[in-house]
Design a protein around this nucleic acid. Structure first.
Lengths: 345, 345
DNA sequence: CAACATCATGGAAACGTTTCCAGAAAAGGG
DNA sequence: CCCTTTTCTGGAAACGTTTCCATGATGTTG
């Protein structure tokens, strides 16, 4: 009923516990015959060395903590998959938890990870506050993923693995403007949040770089929920019926744009071109298939885990790791309709 | 640099370690003044009680192990979210790993969980073999989710939390037949796999219960990958152009059916009705929106975690927990076209 | 005020490992 | 055959907690 310990195995094999330990931890030399006897005894007793005993002594748990806003989100899920993938090759296990974007939960999770003495921490910060920076003081490798908290810790820079969102947005904007669009809407992150939205900034910058006037009225903001995204999209598209294209800064606003366009009987892409950030499964399935900016979520997770688990050398002011995005062109964007075309419809 | 221990706190507060322990574990009585001094010292030292020290003594780690085939799969992701949710309320943490449907990996993960001394295990078994049953001998609560392994352990029945797949399939079949469909295709799980597919069985049973002849040629099987599903769907729809409806036993074959129908210029639902199991996000987004059988994945995870973490009383031969499915009717199914209608197109 | 119950506290023994150290056995060299 | 080197092995001390037990200090009751 109760798990066998190293003592049981030692007794059964007629050896000292030190020998059993050497057999299982691989360190030190053990005679071939002895090793066999130990292994046999262990098999008989169904012995699994206790990680908690070991961790206490070695002061390493072999686990990394991973906190994401929501495992149900396809981007997060891919990040998790990447981390799991890498952790496996490194022989680490993964403690997962979901912050739900709530700073309070985030802090709880950070505490839990600290108690559990994880060897590394990977966090997709919620943006407000930073319960994670405490780990750098205790020497636990910490890696931010996807974004960095607004208020950074004072001293050393925390490593981060990010998608090159600015470049991704730029590529989408250039593509749309190249198709002749001048009045492009943007569905972005909430304004009240403290951190200025990188994507919105990139959107504005890309437009003005191309000589297209930027209109504050063209950007709508929503919290990361279906309802909020839908409301924002509906608001934007109704308010500005002159829009010929919309760029959604995530899959939720992208989904909302598709639904609202359908609702308003706008043909895609004849009346309205739609592009979004995050190339998730349904983008290909929609009708027409959606043009999207792909973020290498899985690679991001993989990379972050390497950094967190290997406890990489504390690098100086070298910036965050930026992974390239890719514009996946599908059928949802077309040439900008002339005003006459739109009126006809 | 190195984390403070209970001794450090005791020294700083000028008390014995037992007292510090009592303050943090909440057991036993501590004078108000002493408690304050201890808490202050702990705050100064940024002390987090070590879970590994505690676990060694109490022989409980406060963690549950969760193994799913693929966190990227929406169903699995929802299960994970449910588990996380429940674990949080129970004060447990979650060790997550992905089996990728590979029995070897599955066994590795089971070993890892055993080493980590998790307090409970939740597994979506791959179906072949059963590396999990070892836990029942060691008294670790084990719960299967989504399905049960083909070869069950001999003695006690392992609790399981499942969607009532048979009922779900039945409801879909009844719905389709009610619309007049007689030749309904089925996209199911691989045949070579040992366990007879519950859903396929239910499909056959439902059809014959309604007096519709079941034709072996109407069922196609695929492994759970996009490619395999697509091949199966293409094969089925080309081979049997007389089909008026298809029921996909998962979102991958569902996706495949949609794509193949589009490829073959079949109008949905005029030429072909499509329904699938798993009501995932894009079902509503597709055009037309897809009729689907919803499995309460989140609830399943929640429920499983309750069972696993509470170490519920070892019940006798009471069967698995069956959670109800729900048929979500959308626009992808219509009345069966007459042969003439189909020819006209 | 004596006798006793209650409360707050610290010492010390576990829990299951790893690892240092020292001793024994085996192997090799003259 | 003895001495040195190498290889193998076991004892014991950590690692950071919890918890039993004993002790001293209070408070209560007759």
């Amino acid at each position: 009923m109760v798990a066998a310990t190293i003592k049981d195995v030692a007794a059964a094999a007629g050896v000292g516990i030190a020998t059993v330990s050497r057999v299982f931890s691989g360190t030190g030399a053990v005679g071939a015959a002895t090793r066999e006897r130990v292994l046999a005894a262990a098999r008989d007793l169904d012995y699994h060395p206790s990680a908690v005993g070991r961790s206490l002594k070695t002061r390493r748990t072999g686990g990394v903590g991973l906190a994401v806003p929501d495992v149900t989100d396809p981007f997060c899920a891919d990040v998790v998959a990447g981390v799991l993938d890498c952790a496996r090759t490194l022989g680490q296990h993964v403690l997962l938890d979901a912050t739900l974007g709530d700073p309070a939960r985030e802090a709880e999770i950070a505490d839990r990870f600290a108690e559990q003495r994880v060897d590394g921490v990977i966090a997709v910060p919620s943006g407000i506050g930073d319960p994670w920076s405490g780990f750098v003081r205790t020497g636990v490798p910490l890696v931010y993923v996807g974004r960095v908290p607004s208020c950074r810790d004072g001293g050393g820079t925390v490593p981060a693995v990010l998608a090159d969102d600015a470049a991704g947005i730029r590529s989408a904007v250039e593509y749309l403007v190249g198709l002749g669009h001048r009045r492009v809407g943007f569905l972005g992150a909430p304004a009240p949040g403290t951190p200025p939205d990188v994507r919105e900034d990139a959107f504005r910058a890309a437009l003005s770089a191309l000589g297209v006037p930027v209109d504050d009225d063209l950007v709508a903001r929503a919290r990361p929920t279906r309802d909020s995204a839908y409301a924002a999209a509906a608001g934007l598209l109704q308010r500005r019926s002159d829009l010929t294209a919309v760029l959604a800064s995530g899959h939720l606003p992208g989904e909302a744009a598709v639904l609202v366009a359908r609702e308003l009987d706008l043909r895609v892409p004849a009346d309205l071109s739609i592009a979004m950030v995050d190339d998730i499964a349904w983008a290909e399935l929609a009708d027409p298939p959606l043009t999207a900016v792909n973020r290498p979520a899985r690679d991001i997770g993989h990379r972050a885990c390497e950094l967190a688990a290997r406890g990489t050398v504390r690098r100086g002011p070298s910036g965050p790791v930026l992974l390239p995005t890719e514009l996946i062109v599908r059928g949802s964007c077309g040439p900008a309709p002339s005003r006459r075309d739109r009126a006809r419809h």
